[in-house]
Design a protein around this nucleic acid. Sequence first.
DNA 1: AATGAATGAGAATTCATTCAT
DNA 2: CATGAATGAATTCTCATTCAT
Lengths: 194, 194, 194, 194
Amino acid sequence: MKKTKPKYRQIIDAAVVVIAENGYHQAQVSKIAKQAGVADGTIYLYFKNKEDILISLFQDKMGYFVEKIEEKIAGKEKAAEKLLVMVESHFSMLSVDRHLAIVTQLELRQSNKDLRHKINEVLKGYLALIERILFDGRESGEFSADLDIRLARQMIFGTMDETLTTWVMNDQKYDLTALAEPVHKLLISGCGKP
Amino acid sequence: MKKTKPKYRQIIDAAVVVIAENGYHQAQVSKIAKQAGVADGTIYLYFKNKEDILISLFQDKMGYFVEKIEEKIAGKEKAAEKLLVMVESHFSMLSVDRHLAIVTQLELRQSNKDLRHKINEVLKGYLALIERILFDGRESGEFSADLDIRLARQMIFGTMDETLTTWVMNDQKYDLTALAEPVHKLLISGCGKP
Amino acid sequence: MKKTKPKYRQIIDAAVVVIAENGYHQAQVSKIAKQAGVADGTIYLYFKNKEDILISLFQDKMGYFVEKIEEKIAGKEKAAEKLLVMVESHFSMLSVDRHLAIVTQLELRQSNKDLRHKINEVLKGYLALIERILFDGRESGEFSADLDIRLARQMIFGTMDETLTTWVMNDQKYDLTALAEPVHKLLISGCGKP
Amino acid sequence: MKKTKPKYRQIIDAAVVVIAENGYHQAQVSKIAKQAGVADGTIYLYFKNKEDILISLFQDKMGYFVEKIEEKIAGKEKAAEKLLVMVESHFSMLSVDRHLAIVTQLELRQSNKDLRHKINEVLKGYLALIERILFDGRESGEFSADLDIRLARQMIFGTMDETLTTWVMNDQKYDLTALAEPVHKLLISGCGKP
DNA sequence: AATGAATGAGAATTCATTCAT
DNA sequence: CATGAATGAATTCTCATTCAT
């Protein structure tokens, strides 16, 4: 399995750094190779093409995200609590990896429609996790019986995403993790009065 | 004033069509010129460069959005009602212009960081409108007194944006306008029980 | 005769200024038109094309040069004296028109081979004048009987030209007219000892 | 060192041929690449840009000139003799490379002011060589004690340059090397009688 | 497995010139 | 005579990918 070889990870990690520091369109394969300490041609022994590096990068990181979050919510009972843990984990993981935050929130979005469809495929795992939490919450009576799970998932993901992107566009200059709790509260109760 | 000349609009409209049908990276200036029925060089009598076409396009459309929405909410009293009108208008305007929806939700995001920062400047007018509604709603006691306006704005914009993008990524195959009301309800009351 | 109409001269003079200040390759027809205070299209009522402006400019100025110099040497008897007057006049006329000096010594040389051949045609009048002086000097015994007139003309013109170009390349920052006498002495006696 | 690789020379030599045969403005990079037998992109592995090819070409050839001339005058004692060798060498070297003569005397002068300033920097080595000969000749009493070295250098270079350019403009149809001796004589003794 | 020199397709922009008014 | 909006041809340079070593 190629994915376990050390150079595979070297290249993925190099790609995150190079894209974050140079931007998507200035992240040439040769730069990634240099950062990874390998020859240009070597990249193609581990990845089909440049797009494959980016998809693999996203799969790799997002897979780790979902895994970590699932671990953490395993012990929680309430859906609301699970959501809080999810938002906290997501925010916290991007807080500690500034490069990755830039890559996922800004740079990777500059990819073309084709690549974005593939990225969306990868995202489905995360979205399914959110929907599972919402479904459980509705079943248990914690959430409205008429909650539209798909829309609610779009609200939750859209809100987190917009919060993250705003934070990155503002050069990550405020504490993101402090926003997890109020964002969670908003998602649970909306703008209206309790 | 160049912006009022007929060729200015011809070119903007041609750009929307060409970008929507060919994708951002396949929208060459020569294609836009052909679609607009002018010579390549004519483009540069009306726009500084290719990026200027895209910014102008966004300014033009987004300016129209904000203007229309402001007109419609002018007569409304309740903040919640204003929000509903806003979501309805936004969804409805993109529903009737499939090309524009593709351009704003997918293609324009492939632009580089520089252009995206300029687009964000344009977006500020819209975001300010949302914040104004939230502020009025909080002042009038309609919304929670401790509502964090910035976060609430991020939730509203993020939710609409995610809903729109999902719709476009699914080839606009379901009725978007029907989602305005339930999305609005979600934004007002969140996932929790009323 | 078009050449006597005021706009003809306006355009020629505008061309000198625009080329001197912007350089040959940045001297667009539209800039010359603007400087001359006429519309772009008007240029083409007085000149066949852009190249025609440049040739006319050169003919105009060089014709004036030859005319002035011929006037001044008319009263002189000695060939050496005539040469001195010629060098003095040439240097002096370019000294008082900095723009023209830049145009003839630097900018017009950037034209293509074709245009340069036409410019050379115009130059022939000047070169013939030099050869006439040399011929007379040789006939009268003032110069060596075996003086190769063609080569001597190349020396005289080449030396003046190099002196002028060096002066312009050094931003015309020293007194050019003071060089006329020593240059003349050099041309008469060469590097050797008298 | 790139300058020693065979492709570096291939490209320089191809550039001389292409510029001489097509003219400066018709010497596209793709033509040079084709003539050199390499791909367009390969050019950019050896040269920063098109201008860099031209500067390198000039440096390369002019450096060779100065080197060869210095070798040849090393054994000579008299300054006048050194000058003769210099003129002979210069004329002879351009006589045997018709393409190069066209490029240095006509085509390279069409470059813009920026490139011409860089070319002038390269020329300084040659001009310094001339001044060194003149200085030695003046010190040894061979030349006038009051010889203005700067002006004399301008005469020498200007005369050679004009002679060369005239020869090239006349399609190199007479024997240039035969002119070295009479040109030298002119430079030493000027137009006056001995 | 690893290298890195070589490839070559692809696109924004300028500006001399025209011609309908 | 004069205008100036419109035209459209033409060229450098980048960079993902290959393949001989």
